[in-house]
Design a protein around this nucleic acid. Structure first.
Lengths: 346, 346
DNA sequence: TATCAAAATACAATCGATTGTATTTATAAG
DNA sequence: CTTATAAATACAATCGATTGTATTTTGATA
């Protein structure tokens, strides 16, 4: 036999409940709980005791509504499971909590429609500001322009898009792409494949530009058929590897714009008996933890995620503290660094 | 020279702004925007047009305050970067969005103090309910009891703790531990090490109990020195591996209560020249993606993260829809499954 | 055209907390 | 024991939206 004890859920205590119980005014209770000098010490103590007794907990929604403030920052990332983004989030949380702000984390899962909906929800919830790394599908910006017109401060990190007057904290993707490619060239590679992402995103355009620039510097001619665009998922990497092996000449190096696709390619190469790094040297991008574990370990470009998060948050807070909008935006570019591992060591 | 164009930030449009502009009452505007039959079609159209023109967007904080509802669910996980938790989160988001709820994701980073603060913030923000997987440090439950007394519906998933009348959605950790260990025994292992986590958490106690039960079934005597407790981070795994190798007899199998520690151990074993799986067969727990990539690939116990998230959300929504609290809690246990890979294949 | 029900809209209170102003109470000086 | 001043508290409006009730307008019918 199962006994279901039923308890009526009573409503949460408000300052009015406390006021009524003590036969005083709610404004006095409010001032006491905010430690205002306008309430006597004796009364403050009594009110605090009663509040405690009744299990009072301030309703910050009501409080914020009255004060017209909001201490929540919205964060939109493509995927929380990516190591780079979760370290950015840690940096954001760190900086935000220090400044007394809460953080709402949302993932677009690389879908524009989802990103739109998230922006809408954040605006409806009147967040104080938004930190945003756009999805791969984000080729239309109406939702972002809307947020801008709306007066909500926001800032791009890592993946941005060309909206007037919005600041961003970025990685030097051009340099990263250049370093990765030059590293392969210095290891003796001459026919270097390149996996890139949607060209609507500046990060991928810039990594590709860095790739091309390194080729030029070393007088290696650029072959368009070596550059493959995709969503950079693991199977895109396998697919790309197959394409590279099917070319009429031998490809001896690969620079992938992310680690996940690089790993997909590695799997394919291994299956096909292509020896890494001797026959094929590979460099990824992002330094996912798995890159240090896979065999051979993957050379990659490390991005300072935590610092990006911290910095982006500080800049956003600065922007939020202004009562006017500065149309001139600020772009901060952080350095990335190449980590050499076995996939290119020779 | 830098020109800084300054724009005064105007306040966001309210129903009162619309009402004033149209010389009608705010209540009519509100009803029109909520598509109430009490407003004529003609007026509705005019109001909608004006709302659009002024860029109106409902303030859901004010709306929810008046209606005393809240359509936000809070989720607390130890770490969003763990694959298991991020897949649970995807399941939660899926089910929550379908039901018209938003989700706030928070990470405790395995720290009790942080978990406490998060609970406080969620309660102050009057979330409709909370889904929670406790931190490794959670040995005191005052914050959870407080949430319960407060009347906020919540539910444990995966990592729970013994609080009366709180439902939970769990994995059959005993069975998982049993399967992992029996698998090693059937592969011929006789001295099987075991990495476990904080014994305050039932999941680790249960995995250990499964380990012991499998030994008993196969008449292998249980040796306490083979069971090592830690925080199950990668370096804990390395440390544990060293301890196992230093025993006066040969350990030939390892069941780790998570993949991360198992991988730490694998690294150590490989450095020391211990051959996996021939000299040491290994089974992890959680099926992190890296487990399929590491060499040799890691045998592990797969947990249906997405399903756990979905189910937990549905149960929470059910609980939230009640106006009374049922003291009797419901515990749902989902099956896990062993995935055999190279680290134990022989 | 007068009458009345139904439709449309306005008024006012409310959610919980905050805050400017008004009033009461306490304290000190004359 | 007044009176002036400061301290403490109460009153009332407000944040933005919702909702029960009251009022006005509309349109149909006699």
């Amino acid at each position: 036999m199962q006994v279901n004890l039923l308890i009526i859920v009573e409503n949460k205590t408000t300052i009015h409940d406390i006021a009524r119980a003590m036969k005083i005014d709610a404004s006095t209770v409010s001032r006491a709980l905010n430690n205002s000098p306008r309430v006597s010490l004796k009364t403050k103590d009594r009110i605090l005791a009663k509040a405690n007794e009744l299990g009072y907990q301030r309703n910050v929604l009501a409080s914020n509504l009255r004060k017209s403030v909001n201490n929540t920052i919205g964060v939109i990332v493509p995927r929380i499971s990516r190591h780079f983004f979760s370290s950015v989030i840690s940096g954001i949380e760190e900086a935000a909590y220090d400044a007394g702000y809460n953080v709402i984390i949302c993932q677009s899962l690389e879908q524009l429609e989802r990103e739109r909906k998230i922006v809408e929800t954040l605006l409806a919830n009147r967040v104080a500001g938004v930190l945003l790394s756009v999805s791969m599908e984000t080729v239309k910006f109406d939702h972002l322009l809307n947020m801008k017109n709306n007066g909500t401060p926001f800032l791009f990190f890592d993946r941005h898009c060309g909206i007037e007057g919005v600041s961003s904290v970025l990685i030097d993707d051009f340099q990263g792409g250049f370093d990765a490619t030059e590293h392969l060239i210095l290891k003796g590679c001459r026919n270097i494949g390149h996996f890139s992402g949607p060209q609507a995103l500046a990060i991928y355009r810039n990594r590709t530009a860095g790739y091309i620039s390194a080729l030029e510097k070393h007088k290696i001619s650029y072959r368009p058929e070596l550059v493959l665009h995709s969503g950079l998922m693991e199977n895109d990497g396998e697919e790309g590897a197959r394409t590279l092996l099917s070319l009429p000449y031998t490809v001896d190096g690969l620079f992938s714009a992310n680690d996940v696709a690089a790993i997909g390619a590695m799997k394919y190469f291994k299956r096909e008996g292509v020896i890494i790094p001797d026959e094929m040297a590979i460099v990824g991008f992002s330094n996912e933890p798995v890159s240090g574990i896979i065999d051979p370990s993957l050379t990659t470009i490390d991005q300072p995620g935590f610092e990006i998060g911290q910095l982006a948050t500080r800049l956003l807070l600065e922007e939020m503290s202004r009562t006017t909008i500065t149309v001139k935006a600020k772009t901060t570019i952080l350095k990335s660094s190449l980590i050499e591992r076995d996939s290119s060591r020779r």
